[in-house]
Amino acid sequence: MKAVRLLGLPVLLVLLWWAVSGGSFYLPSPDRVAVAFAETWFSDRLTGDVLPSVGRLLAGYALAALLGGWLGVPIGLSPRLRATLEPVLEFFRAIPPPVLVPLIMLLAGIDTPMKVLVIVSGCVWPVLLNTVEGVRALDEVLADTCRMYGIRGWPRVRGFVLRGASPQIMAGLRQALSIGIILMVISEMFASSSGLGFTIVLFQRQFQIAEMWSGILLLGLLGLGLSLLFRRLERWVLSWYYGSGAARA
């Protein structure tokens, strides 16, 4: 019964796809896309294009997370600093990240540093602003308790500030992940000669339609896989939070 519920609609949709796609140029049938998928991505493209793309994504994402958290804690803890920087940060967050690609190309060329920098430049804002928010909203009783017990310095940051703000920080990281995937693809669509984004656009330019669809499928699977991984990570990091019932309140 559960399997029917889980797979019923997807199977129906694939059947519909099959029925519609007969002879259509833009929409090849599912089996042709599946064959193209296997031929295209289980080859040296996997190590030449896919893995480097994912590596850049993870590198940029990790850098943005560190930078956002590292800057967010002091800004969140100091009301004066927060009031001073808030308009500036809001402005930077409001800039659609892809717009920065042409700019970063000017500054950092077109190689790997540019692509990583693009991902960092987009991912850092949600992490930073959510960290600031989370740190600002820390429980005051807990803050006083920390002071009473003389907990300060790094143990305080790690055990109280980061921990207390972690639900917000994770929310920021989740937003940053989807922005990161978008930027990974876009950074490779400009002046690039390898990577997932480049390859998919190349297929489209050469009218290799089945291959193009297989690339879209791969990006979808990548997005799905990363979001499942992230949910795992979130459960693990926030297990204390879900356990306390605060998440439901």
Binding site: I182, M189, V201, G215, G220, G223, L224, L226
Partner: peptide
Amino acid sequence: PIPSVALVP
């Protein structure tokens, strides 16, 4: 979770 930029081509 399919990134919408996947639809660019």
